[in-house]
Structures are given as structure tokens and as C-alpha cells.
Simulated scan of single mutants.
Amino acid sequence: MSLNAHVYRLTLLHRRLDEAVRREARRRGTDPYRVLRLKKLKLAVRDRLSVLMRRPALG
């Protein structure tokens, strides 16, 4: 998988996690542990994206 494809997939995942956090926060009877888990996953994806974006371009 190329770097651009990997970054794109991680960006989509980050966006889906963001939507899931918002959906869970609006839901009646919100599970704070689910929100926390989703936020941690979102942060891990963001950290991975930042590492990939700091790589020097090859070629």
C-alpha cells in the first residue's frame, strides 16, 4: 500500500471515529467509557497520521 493510500485510509478512520464520538455524546444514556475508548482510538490514529506526515518524501 502506498503512503498516500495509507494516509487516506487513516484520515477516513479518524473522521469516522470523530462522528462516532459525537453520535455517542448526543445519545441518551451516554456510556462515558465508550466515549473515552473512541477518543483514545481517535488520538492514536491522529498520532500515526502525524508520524506518517513527518516522513520525508521519497523519490
Rank of each mutant, 00 (worst) to 15 (best):
S2R: 12
V7H: 00
L10D: 07
L41I: 06
K42V: 04
R27A: 13
A5N: 14
D18T: 08
L58E: 11
M53S: 12
L43E: 12
T11G: 08
L43D: 15
L58F: 05
L13A: 11
L58H: 13
L58S: 13
V51N: 09
L49D: 09
E24W: 08
R26F: 02
P32W: 00
L10T: 00
L12N: 13
R9A: 15
R23G: 03
R23E: 08
K40Q: 12
H6N: 12
R48Q: 08
L38V: 02
K42H: 08
R16W: 04
R15N: 05
V21F: 09
R54D: 14
R9K: 12
V51E: 13
S2I: 09
R27G: 06
G59R: 11
R9P: 04
N4Q: 14
L43Y: 12
R23F: 04
R37D: 03
V21A: 04
A25Y: 11
R23Y: 10
L52I: 10
K42I: 09
M53D: 12
S50K: 13
R48M: 00
S2L: 14
V21Y: 01
T30L: 02
E24F: 01
G59S: 13
T11S: 10
R28F: 10
V45K: 01
R54N: 07
L13Q: 13
A5M: 03
R55N: 12
T30P: 02
R9C: 05
T11F: 02
L12H: 08
L38R: 10
R54E: 13
R34Y: 02
R9H: 08
A57P: 06
R54C: 08
R34S: 09
R16A: 03
Y8A: 13
L41W: 06
D47I: 07
R28Q: 14
M53A: 14
L17Y: 07
A44G: 10
L3M: 12
L41V: 02
L52Q: 10
V35Y: 06
R28L: 13
L13K: 06
L36M: 13
R55F: 02
D47S: 13
R34L: 11
K39I: 05
L17D: 04
L13P: 04
Y33N: 15
R37F: 06
R23N: 03
R46H: 05
R37Q: 07
R22Y: 02
M1D: 13
L17Q: 00
N4T: 14
R27W: 01
G29W: 05
V51Y: 10
D31P: 03
V35P: 05
L17C: 08
L38I: 05
A25E: 15
V21G: 03
M53K: 15
V21C: 08
A20I: 01
R15W: 06
V21H: 00
E19G: 03
V7D: 00
K42R: 15
V35W: 08
L36D: 04
R54Y: 00
L38D: 02
P32I: 03
V35R: 04
T11C: 06
H14P: 10
R27H: 10
K39N: 08
L12K: 13
R46M: 04
L58I: 12
E24K: 11
T30H: 11
R37L: 03
V35S: 01
S50W: 06
A5C: 07
T30W: 03
L58G: 11
P56F: 07
V45N: 02
R16Q: 10
N4R: 14
L41K: 08
G29C: 09
R22M: 01
M53G: 09
